[in-house]
Structures are given as structure tokens and as C-alpha cells.
Design a protein around this nucleic acid. Structure first.
Lengths: 330, 330
DNA sequence: CTGAAAGCGCTAACAG
DNA sequence: CTGTTAGCGCTTTCAG
């Protein structure tokens, strides 16, 4: 019923080895033979079985992508960059969604490995101890984008979050803001720790202490959570709110406006994601601008190097950032 | 290096067939044997090779998902529904992104088939003649969600777009609106034709003609395209704008506000996607509310039936819709 | 330049 | 309940 390489070989009156050679672009085939085989392939509408191929060659030309939440614009922007480069290098991507669940993250990884992917990239993600162990045991090349793990053993692509947030915080403090609230996303992530450190460093540089004037809250990274957490922010009399997620920032923004606060007069808002959303709300959201697409693209490029066993000079890539002060900051 | 079923068999002093049986939960294994094998599996940290499995069993427990644009909230909402149900039925999903390119759509499908997926679902998509032919030739179960093809040969899940848009249009006309502009997305899609028909039907029912008073434009489905197309809308002196995409609607909205038009006083806006965005802008966007998550979920459920060769009573499922009149309509 | 033959790691009859 | 034996469809030596 399904046509196999064997059928093609028979029809073309060659051996299956030869058919395999033309399939794989092996130059050791006489042009006439090649043409003959190609014609039969066309006529029979033959398509190689990628599964059999994968088993025989131990390569699947497939990379796994593990994402906390595809419906989050932050991650899907990263994914676009990944995808484009993957295509350029003739890899296909299997995207799996963990729904921010570290357990699923681990399962997804194992499942991808059992599918014999040639490599996997984590976009964000918790990367807990267990998962790290599985990665090590798997002997599969892994690159992590937009997250990090403490030992820096894994190749990664990031921006310098610590510096970025420190710069932003210092600016707020220098301009007279005193009560800065930071809203973490509830999916624990090494990055957020760097960010906390950055905030603390900025305070310290100015001889101030974080504890009295700053508050660190946790919220889901959606719009409603931003609206919901506003009460806590407000009761802290915050004059600056920094959130991980754009959606959360927008929720905070709208709640603040509903409480007749002036933006950015009474309260300034800055997010750390810089997704397409920042330009889609009024007032436009100020944000630490990471090169999302590039992070994904560079991550995939890095992975191809590992998959080809090329040498890489820098396995922990840091990309530049900008801080875009739009209309929610002064 | 990698541990195989053969290693497990040897260590457990059984045949590989027995190992295979415990792997697949075959009841014909003595409890003690089962335990013995499981212990060895644990000890050796053995993980079955899904590729070999797929080749031998001709099943991959994997379904392909073809999406025009993952970074579009409309599609990612559908994908979430799909994913949840897929997981429930122990299928994994391979998501591929076509970037709204019919050529890529076709290639993605073929690639998925060569990977021996057990089924594929299209979310949206152009489904041109060529792709349809490939689908027919592939003998792989296919379900399409949020799109349709003219012959209705393929199982599908949709809402009644025609009715929805007719109802909305009729309401606008009855309430005195006269100049309705419809903004299609540029990715041609059978659905949009249904929508056009719905608009025409509404006009006709009231004894009016579409041509004089209605204008049909085409724009990409992003925010900027919405802003850009406003000039055309404005020069038509539209009093109602209906767009496929939420982002486009928001772009139109903001442009209109920048031109000092009152919303919804001077111009009303309605979108057809109802993604999370509708609540994240001020004023909140009125929209035809489709059950996005459910469309995906029902689609995947339908696919499982085909993959199991169960009988299905209704292969073209129509789910209910609501029209949510929020703050951009009167 | 081409063919024969040996697997890749697993499932699935078929015996027993 | 368990083992033996063929493959699944392809790649890849190794000869020639």
C-alpha cells in the first residue's frame, strides 16, 4: 500500500542502496542513474519514511523546543526566531508546552529524547535539579534561552538582566522615586533572581536599603493577575511598579487608572518583556527591550553548532538590551 | 552506550518480548516477572526508543498540528484546547508554523506525514487544491478547525460564521448604521468568504445593497496594519468597522481615537476573534465570541475518533457562538 | 559508480 | 505466561 524504497529500486532496476544515495544527495551516482531514479520517485510519488530513516541513521533532523506557555507572546516571539533558523539549517521543530509546570517540563524533555531529537532548546523554564540531571544523562545537546541555571553548565542565550534592571532602578531612584514594587511571575525562574539582585544592587549603590522601600510580589503573568495585585501595590504607596510580564503590567496600569491615579505622574510602570503588547495599549508601556527574536535565533544557531560538533567559542551568549521609556514612565 | 530493550532482557534474564510486554502494559505477564523487569528498567534507567517503536508498530502516538502563526493569540488559544485533549488521550503534538504561507502549509503537512504522525489537525489555514490532494493521498486522518474547504469532505469544527456575522450586521443596520466596512485578513481563508456572504445576506434581508454602502478591505492581521488601513476606512466615512483580527481592530480603534473620533459614538468596531486582547484594551473591544479553546478541544477529540477508527456521527461540528457587545459598540 | 548484506531498537505473530 | 523469529523502511559498511 505505502510505497517504499524497495519499490522504487525495483521499478528503476537498481538496488535500494542506489535509491538511498540519490535520496541523500550522495555524489557517487552516475547522472543517468540519478535521473532514472528520480523519475521513478516522482512517478510513484514516493516519500521516504522519516521514522525508518531516523532509526537507521540515528539522526532525526528534528529539534525539540520546550516552552512554558505558547499562548504567551513573549515565548512565541522567541519561538519565531528559533523556527526561522531551524528551517534555514533544515531542522524541524517539535514544540511542547509545559504550562509552567516543572513536572511537565521534565516529562516533555524525556519524551523528546525518546523521540530521538537531535537537540533541544528550552525557552524560559524552571530547570529544576531533576530536569538538569536528566539533561546530563541524556547526552543530547541542549541550549537554554531566556533563562539560566546556577552552574552555567548549559549553553545559553540571554541579556544581562542584572545590569538592565539595575540601570532602570537606579534611574528611578535618582529621579526621586522611593517606593519601587517588583512583581515577579509565579513560575520560578533563575532570571527573576538576577532581577531581584539587580534591584538590590541599585539601592545599595545609592546607600539605600531595599527592605524598607521596596516590595517584591508574585503574580501570574496574565492581565487579570495584574489587575488583582494592584491593591497590594497601592497600599504600599508605590511610585514605581516593575513587572516581569507585559500583561501583568497592563493590568496594573488599568487598575491604577481606575483608581484615578495619573500615569506616569502618580505611578510609573515598567515591564521586562517588551512583547508586541507594549505598543498596543494606551499609554504605551515602557519596557526593558530584549531582542526576543534574536535570542531565539541565536539559540538555535548555537544548537546547530553543538549538533554538528563544531567548536563554539562562547557558550553563554549575552545579547544587548535597551530600555525603552515610553509613556508609562517620566 | 545507550541502553536497549535487549540489555534489559539480559539483565532481567527474560526475553525481549517479555520486556516489551511490560513496557506496553500487556496483562500476560506474571506479577513477579513484571516486577523484576521493572526493577531492571529502573536500575538501568532505560527509556524506550520511540523511533524504533514507531517503525515496528506503525504508530507514533503523535499528531501534527499545522498553524498559520503561533504568535497569534487566536491560534495559540485553539492550540491550548488541542494540546489538553491530546494529552488526555496520550498523544503528543508536533506544532508547525506556516507563517501564513500556503506553500509552507503543504510542505509542513508532507513532512508530518513522512514522520508518520497518526493524524493531523489544521488550525485555520488556506488548504488550497494541492494541499487537499496531498491530504487525500496520504490516508492520514485529518481534522480542520476554524477553517473549511468547499467540498466539506474533511471533518471540521467551526462556528456558524455566516449566521454570526449576519446577526451582527443586521443589528448594526437596524440601529441605523449605514456604512459598514469589513476588513479581511490577507491570508485567504474559506471562512472569510462565509463572512462576506453573511454581510451580504444581512443587507439583502433589509432590501439594501452591499455595493453602495459597504466596503471590503484586506489587511494583515497585526496592530500596525489596523492603524495603516484607517485612512481608507475614514475616507469611506464608515460608521461601523468589522475586522477578522483583534489586533487589526485595536489598530483601527487607536487610529480613530487619534483622529478625534468618538468610540462608539462616531464609529463602532467589532472583531471576529475574541482573543484575550479584547479585555486588555480600553475601550474594551466588542467581538464575535467563539469558543476558541473548545474548538481546539473538540477538534482533537474528533481526531482521536478517526485515529481509533471509531464511528463518528457528525463530522462537521458547529459550536455555538455569542456576540459580546462591549465598549466599542453602542 | 553500484549492489549485497547487516543491522538500527522495537513490536507482533506464533509456538509452546 | 514466556521465548523465538520475523520483519518495520531505511542507512551504511564492504566488496567489486
Amino acid at each position: 500500500m505505502t510505497v517504499t524504497i524497495y519499490d522504487v529500486a525495483r521499478e528503476a532496476k537498481v538496488s535500494m542502496a542506489t535509491v538511498s544515495r540519490v535520496l541523500n544527495g550522495n555524489p557517487n551516482v552516475k547522472p543517468e542513474t540519478r535521473k532514472k531514479v528520480k523519475d521513478v520517485i516522482e512517478r510513484l510519488n514516493y516519500r521516504p519514511n522519516a521514522v525508518a530513516r531516523g532509526l537507521a541513521s540515528k539522526k532525526t533532523t528534528t529539534v525539540g523546543v520546550i516552552i512554558p506557555d505558547i499562548s504567551n507572546l513573549y515565548y512565541s516571539a522567541l519561538a519565531r526566531g528559533l523556527d526561522d533558523i531551524a528551517e534555514m539549517y533544515n531542522y524541524q521543530t517539535i514544540i511542547t508546552n509545559t504550562e509552567n509546570d516543572p513536572e511537565k517540563e521534565k516529562d516533555s524533555f524525556l519524551s523528546l529524547v525518546s523521540k530521538q531529537v537531535d537537540g533541544v532548546v528550552f525557552l524560559g523554564g524552571a530547570l529544576n535539579e531533576e530536569t538538569l540531571t536528566d539533561i546530563k544523562n541524556s547526552h543530547v545537546p541542549v541550549v537554554i534561552c531566556g533563562t539560566s541555571e546556577k552552574d552555567k553548565n548549559l549553553p545559553s542565550v540571554n541579556i544581562d538582566y542584572f545590569e538592565a534592571i539595575k540601570e532602570a532602578t537606579a534611574k528611578f531612584l535618582e529621579e526621586g522615586s522611593e517606593r519601587i514594587v517588583f512583581v515577579k511571575a509565579s513560575f520560578s525562574n533563575q532570571l527573576e533572581n538576577h532581577i531581584e539582585e539587580g534591584i538590590k544592587a541599585a539601592y545599595k549603590d545609592l546607600g539605600k536599603s531595599v527592605d524598607d522601600n521596596s516590595l517584591i510580589l508574585t503574580a501570574d503573568s496574565d492581565y487579570q493577575s495584574g489587575k488583582d495585585i494592584f491593591d497590594q501595590i497601592n497600599s504600599h504607596k508605590a511610585d514605581v511598579v516593575i513587572t516581569m510580564s507585559d500583561e501583568t503590567a497592563i493590568g496594573v496600569l488599568h487598575s491604577a487608572m481606575d483608581h484615578d491615579l495619573e500615569i506616569p505622574g502618580d505611578i510609573q510602570v515598567l515591564s521586562c518583556s517588551n512583547t508586541r503588547l507594549v505598543n498596543m495599549v494606551r499609554p504605551q508601556l515602557s519596557s526593558i527591550a530584549m531582542p526576543l527574536y534574536d535570542i531565539g535565533a541565536v539559540g538555535m544557531r548555537l544548537l546547530t553548532k553543538y549538533m554538528n560538533e563544531e567548536t563554539v567559542d562562547e557558550s553563554n551568549v549575552i545579547l544587548p538590551y535597551k530600555i525603552e521609556y515610553r509613556s508609562t514612565t517620566r
